[in-house]
Design a protein around this nucleic acid. Structure first.
Lengths: 192, 192
DNA sequence: CTCGATTGTCTAGCGGTGCTAGCATCGATT
DNA sequence: AATCGATGCTAGCACCGCTAGACAATCGAG
């Protein structure tokens, strides 16, 4: 059955190629430029091949989103691990989150702005998404304060970061004082 | 010149009809369903008529966004005016903001998620947008705390509200504990 | 009142989108 | 070596935003 195994490997490899190419194209020229025709051309296959891997464009976006969620979780954990006290840890976490959003705008869009057909905060939520939230919870749960549910606190902190990330990138917030806003967020929300 | 005046009135009236119909259609079936063909059919004119009023679909979205900004400003001011102390005022403001976003999802999207070709936080920012931010600033400036720039504080508070609004509506945050998150936000961010 | 000009609206169509039916070719199996 | 199923292709559907050009209605001048 070695032939079949090789085929499966090649198929999996091509699937990774599709996702990587979609991501690359989105980061270079925005998601609007990611059409099935262009994507097919870049991977040097015809359009229908995409549909033998994914149900449609939505699912491709969803795949990029899952990839991003894993990276975001790793970035957040790495930042938190390299900090000394609670305050430094939360600050590092916030910066890492906002930095990820700024450096990977297309991936961040795939996760939170576009419809990738993913379900959140449910039982059937994909593992990487749950894990990304868990990464935030690990560091933020400790600074929720007395009598405050750690999960609820993390949700609020996350929402604030998300608001800053999206409004900044959409040029709804001026880049000036971006650092002040981050520090103020940490100082006020977290109980240190 | 009464004839010309009548024509101008009719033209302005039709422009309002276009914006109102786009908004209605978007709230009913989402912005994806707002195509130039469907919109034209609903106002009982042909597609090109739309282009004699707006440069394109973007501008129609922008018009809905401006309408929404004016309403949001009014809603925020009304809520703030009806509250007694500082704490009640900020709580009422937050609730009014989130309530507006929840009740007018399509309009909120037009303002902050979609590209309506509007510029923010610049000199040539349309008046309704500046005024909506001003409405927030009026109530939030007082609770920024010592040594904190009221504008920067308002930007942060706004971003947090925006994050809660978008993540909740996109079902990224569970509806449970929505009220707790709001109260926690007010209690922590505002200096009362 | 008639007639040309202007204004306004429509029909038809362009190039693009996501997606799919059906055919042809290639390659593993017998 | 012949067969036959898997695989990727060409071609095309219905829809999108947008626009050129034909046509009709209205206006102003003689």
């Amino acid at each position: 059955m070695s032939v079949q195994e090789r085929k499966e490997r090649e198929r999996a490899e091509r699937e990774r190629l599709i996702v990587a190419t979609a991501r690359e194209l989105a980061e270079q020229q925005g998601w609007d430029a990611v059409t099935t025709r262009r994507l097919a051309e870049r991977i040097e296959y015809s359009q229908p091949v995409l549909y033998s891997h994914f149900r449609g464009k939505r699912e491709i976006i969803g795949a990029v989103a899952l990839e991003g969620a894993a990276e975001l979780a790793a970035a957040v954990r790495a930042a938190a691990a390299g900090a000394s006290g609670p305050r430094e840890r939360v600050t590092a976490l916030a910066r890492a989150y906002l930095d990820f959003a700024a450096r990977n705008p297309a991936v961040y869009d795939a996760m939170f702005q576009l419809d990738g057909g993913l379900t959140f905060a449910k039982e059937d939520t994909p593992e990487p998404l749950k894990d990304a939230f868990a990464a935030l919870l690990e560091s933020l749960g400790d600074v929720a304060g007395d009598g405050v549910h750690p999960g609820v606190f993390t949700e609020l902190f996350w929402a604030s970061l998300h608001g800053l990330a999206t409004l900044t990138r959409a040029e709804r917030l001026p880049p000036t004082y971006a650092e002040e806003r981050t520090e103020l967020l940490v100082a006020r929300l977290a109980v240190l």
